[in-house]
Amino acid sequence: MRLIVCGGTGFIGTSLTQALLSRGDEVWIVTRKIPTVPRYDETLPHPRFITWNQWSDQPDLLSGYDGLINLTGESIGQRWTSATKQRIVSSRVDAATTIANNMKRMTSPPPVVVNASGISLYGHSGQQVFDESSDVNPADFLGDTVIEWENAIDLIPATRLVKLRIGLVLAREGGSFPLLRLPYRLFGGGRMGSGQQGLPWIHLLDMVSLILFCLETSTMEGPVNGVAPEHVSNDEFGRVLGKVMRRPHWFHVPGWLMKAVLGEMSTLVLTGQRASPRKALDAGFSFTFPQLEDALREISR
């Protein structure tokens, strides 16, 4: 396949690009700045790069490609100042808007677009499990951000458009897992807040495989939950992590302390969702790591 990857130099994008190159696909990466030292396997063909401005100036430079994957977005793992929150929103909305505008001006736009989204638009859940048919009920800044994000995504004129609502992506390096693992390495792991808040997760390898599945499966369209089938709470996640790392799960961090230290960003760990990848499962997608313990063992080796 000939594919366009927006955000291909990020955490998920780097792994996705290597997977595409390893199977012989041609990849163009759209990025703000062309890297001087690409982070890709030297034994594989390298992707080609183009900036957002270059693409906007000449939309047909990327005409005739089979699909587009957009993973662009400012990291949410930083203190949410007013300026940071603006960057989190604008990086997502502006990228989707630019893609929509450029595709409208292309002679032969990609027929399939898989655009990242977030699981937080469903709102907070106790024991309720959200699937793609569930109502959206944003309850915090991230939920509101995803609503605005998906409104922009819906303007992309693709024949088939997938909005991949992604949870916590687990990998040995990169993403949030190294920070989640740190307290257990220091023998200080435990539940955060009530511990009952849902923690939707997916292994990075399954995340990449699910993106490819969405690209290639004609029935995959609209919202798709990018999470593993086993839904767990914050406390359950910590207990499994402690078991895998052979560390105690005992140190309770109260919610008020998380709020004092992290401010509004504390909602990342004090609230959450239990979610199901019903649409992917119904379409025949098979997870390599459907169980949390297996996923954590693989990335903790």
Rank of each mutant, 00 (worst) to 15 (best):
C6T: 10
G7F: 02
T9D: 11
T14E: 13
Q18H: 10
R23A: 12
D25C: 13
E26Y: 11
E26S: 15
V27G: 14
V30T: 04
I34W: 04
P35D: 13
T36G: 07
T36I: 06
R39E: 15
D41F: 02
T43W: 01
F49K: 04
F49S: 01
T51C: 05
Q54M: 09
S56K: 12
D57L: 13
Q58R: 14
S63Q: 11
G64F: 15
Y65T: 07
G67Y: 01
L71T: 00
I76L: 12
G77I: 03
Q78L: 14
W80I: 09
W80V: 08
S82I: 12
A83W: 10
T84I: 14
K85Y: 13
Q86D: 09
R87W: 10
R87C: 01
R87D: 07
I88T: 06
S90A: 15
V93F: 05
A95C: 03
A95E: 12
A95M: 04
A100R: 01
N101V: 08
R105C: 07
M106Y: 11
T107A: 12
S108N: 12
V112M: 11
V113E: 02
A116R: 03
S117Q: 03
S117C: 04
G118Y: 01
I119C: 07
I119H: 00
H124I: 11
V129T: 14
D131W: 04
S133L: 10
D135F: 15
D135M: 09
G143Q: 05
G143K: 11
T145A: 00
E148Y: 00
W149S: 04
E150S: 09
N151K: 15
N151D: 10
A152F: 07
A158M: 11
L161M: 09
V162H: 03
V162R: 00
V162D: 02
R165H: 03
G167I: 00
L168K: 04
V169C: 03
R172F: 05
G175A: 02
P178Q: 15
P178M: 08
L180F: 11
L182H: 07
P183L: 06
R185I: 12
G189W: 01
G190M: 06
R191E: 05
R191S: 10
M192K: 10
M192E: 10
Q197A: 12
Q197Y: 10
I202Y: 02
I202K: 00
L205C: 12
M207F: 09
M207Q: 15
L210P: 03
L215K: 05
L215N: 08
E216C: 05
T217M: 09
T217H: 15
S218M: 07
G222V: 02
N225L: 15
N225G: 05
G226W: 07
A228F: 05
H231T: 13
N234I: 05
R239G: 14
L241S: 12
G242Q: 04
V244Q: 06
M245Q: 07
G255Y: 11
A260W: 13
V261C: 10
G263L: 02
E264F: 00
M265P: 07
S266Q: 06
T267Y: 00
Q273D: 04
R274P: 02
K279W: 02
L281R: 06
D282A: 11
F285G: 03
F287I: 02
F289S: 00
P290V: 14
Q291Y: 08
Q291W: 03
D294W: 03
A295V: 01
A295T: 03
E298N: 11
E298G: 01
S300P: 01
